[in-house]
Design a protein around this nucleic acid. Structure first.
Ligand SMILES: [Mn+2]
Ligand SMILES: [Mn+2]
Ligand SMILES: [Zn+2]
Ligand SMILES: [Zn+2]
Lengths: 146, 146
DNA sequence: TTTATATTAGATAATAATTATCCACAAAAA
DNA sequence: TTTTTGTGGATAATTATTATCTAATATAAA
């Protein structure tokens, strides 16, 4: 989560040019908790950058990922989602409305150690995804039934 | 993990016809620990069913999933993998050779309870994926360096 | 500020996993 | 058997993502 100045400096340092499109895409990711996919970012920016193409979104995402400004989230949908919070944390997706929310401060450590020991793998990362029905969708369902 | 007779009975009970292709595809999944994707299954069966098409693989997988004979594994590759072990268990993928292995008997219970309580979601499932370098690939790397 | 040059944005086409469609034919029921 | 319903395989469609190409742009040097 960096401000525009720091992002500018980092892009330059890594040999990438700084463009309004790149800053705008990163800015969208910093200002949402919705874990948008490429198309959602595209739609968000459409009013302000009407000529921007999806290819630009994807290319920018590659760069942001490479310089570790974002992480990629694969919750088993047909498209990937992106997150400006790079600290490792797990996610939960509502199987009704498909929103993806954070589960912060979930302690992986014991699990990771256990797995490393039992598999003899040299672990580099992990992803924990949860699925279920969110409280809002539960309430809606209850209203319909009750 | 069912034998052919039980699978036959189950397919019939659920209103699906029993065909050699369907039994063969399920059989492949029962006799491997490689977590194959559609193409790997296709290649495995090619010598014995030279006219079988990928569409048949996909359609059969849909059915096997629907009657809960297999589970679908999404380890963040460009294709999905399939597993005849339907009991919930986590997986680890080697980032060098891309093999996917089981991590059995990993106890999710505390994590699941913790998450259910903190999110108020009505949980229906979860997926834990680990990434790293497998012992074999570690050995290979060491040989090259040492 | 102007200029030089390396990169980029956007248009467009390509890729590749998965899904849909269609029909001769096979499996189960009668 | 005969009938009926569902299926396999061929083929086309879909769709997220990636590749390619070129005019335009960001940036550093002059
Ligand atoms: Mn997140
Ligand atoms: Mn498995
Ligand atoms: Zn919901
Ligand atoms: Zn390996």
């Amino acid at each position: 989560m960096m401000d525009a100045k720091k992002v500018t400096a980092l892009l330059r340092k890594k040999g990438f040019k700084v463009t309004p499109q790149r800053l705008a895409i990163y800015n969208v990711l910093c200002n949402t908790k919705a874990h948008p996919n490429a198309e959602m970012i595209f739609n968000k920016l459409q009013p302000y950058y009407p000529t921007m193409s999806l290819a630009t979104i994807y290319k920018t995402i590659d760069i942001l990922k490479e310089i570790n400004l974002i992480q990629i989230i694969n919750v088993g949908e047909d498209s990937l989602r992106y997150d400006a919070v790079v600290k490792s944390h797990s996610h939960i997706r509502c199987t009704v409305c498909n929103k993806v929310e954070d589960i912060m401060d979930f302690d992986f450590t014991p699990a990771i150690k256990d797995v490393a020991q039992r598999t003899s793998y040299d672990l580099s990362g992990q992803q924990f995804y949860f699925y279920g029905v969110c409280p809002e969708c539960q309430a809606k369902a209850n209203r319909k039934i009750g």
